Computed example of a mutant assay.
Amino acid sequence: MSGNVKFYVGLHQPSDAQHFDLACISINRLRGRKKEVPCGEVLVDSGAFTEISKHGRYRHSVAEYAAELYRLYTSGVVKIAAAVAQDYMCEQFILAKTGLTIEEHQRLTIERYDALVDELQSLFQGEIPFHVMPVLQGFAPLDYVNHIRMYGERLKLEMWVGVGSVCKRQGDPRAIMAVLQAIHRERPDLLLHGFGVKITSLLHPGVRELLATADSMAWSFAARKQGRDANDWHEADRLVRRVKDAANQNFQPWQMEMFA
């Protein structure tokens, strides 16, 4: 990969998407919306972190999620580039919330992916007009390799695939690199998407080299931490500009230490 990551900026307010070409918006923000989201491409997130971390489960079934995606797309409310399957994260505090194991979360993630594809194919009566993104889950690098093998033939050649459970451990970008490298060794063809990638990792050339796409709301956290408005789209725009600037940099290997 070139390191030129396609970046979907995470947004709280769907109306703010008018200022961006690419946006990532949670289904929890889009559910029931009738006004058009003015954005060229929207990555619809399943709201996994909110649902599992707060409630220990999904409050909406796969069928309900599929029906809402179908309504949003066919009514022209959202130009959906991809919809993320309802995955189960594998951080320790999430496992404590559900009482399940990593392997059980991986199995549930695949089951929900299969069910979402089936539901959407039924609703659209055939081919789904946007990508349904499967998610690789785990914690240790080998967990992700095992999950790839659990998916089997579902993961088609050069498929766009999400990588979950990395956003909470990115104080050191080398941690996310270890996961991405393990996946890449097993399936170098896959186009990897990083969920909720922090600024340090977004700007790290080693991470960028292994990702095809990413999303982030790091701008909101940074603004709140620094006493600014965490809902101001201008803050999001500044992050987008930093990511684009990083894509134009030609880093030498020794310069990567700047971001370590």
Score class of each variant (00 low, 15 high):
Leu95Gly: 03
Leu95Pro: 03
Ala96Tyr: 00
Lys97Cys: 00
Thr98Asn: 02
Gly99Gln: 07
Leu100Thr: 15
Leu100Met: 13
Thr101Asn: 00
Thr101Gln: 04
Thr101Phe: 04
Ile102Tyr: 09
Glu103Ala: 14
Glu103Trp: 03
Glu103Ile: 03
Gln106Lys: 05
Gln106Arg: 06
Arg107Tyr: 10
Leu108Ile: 07
Thr109Gly: 07
Ile110Ser: 00
Glu111Met: 13
Glu111Cys: 06
Arg112Glu: 07
Tyr113Glu: 05
Tyr113Leu: 01
Asp114Leu: 15
Asp114Val: 15
Asp114Met: 14
Asp114Asn: 13
Ala115Lys: 10
Ala115Trp: 06
Leu116His: 06
Leu116Gln: 13
Leu116Thr: 11
Leu116Tyr: 02
Val117Gln: 09
Val117Ala: 02
Leu120Trp: 06
Leu120Ser: 09
Leu120Thr: 08
Ser122Glu: 14
Ser122Phe: 11
Leu123Lys: 05
Leu123Asp: 01
Leu123Trp: 02
Phe124Ala: 03
Gln125Lys: 13
Gly126Ile: 06
Gly126Glu: 05
Gly126Tyr: 08
Glu127Tyr: 03
Ile128Phe: 04
Ile128Leu: 04
Pro129Met: 07
Phe130Asp: 08
Phe130Ile: 01
His131Trp: 13
His131Pro: 00
Val132Leu: 04
Val132Cys: 09
Leu136Tyr: 10
Leu136Thr: 07
Leu136Ile: 12
Gln137Glu: 15
Gly138Ser: 10
Gly138Tyr: 09
Phe139Lys: 11
Phe139Gly: 06
Ala140Pro: 04
Ala140Cys: 12
Pro141Gln: 13
Val145Lys: 07
Val145Glu: 08
Asn146Ile: 01
Asn146Ser: 15
His147Gly: 01
His147Asp: 05
Ile148Gly: 06
Ile148Phe: 05
Arg149Leu: 11
Arg149Gly: 01
Arg149Ser: 11
Arg149Lys: 15
Met150His: 12
Met150Ile: 02
Tyr151Phe: 15
Tyr151Asp: 07
Gly152Phe: 05
Leu155Met: 09
Lys156Glu: 14
Lys156Phe: 00
Lys156His: 12
Leu157Gly: 00
Leu157Asn: 14
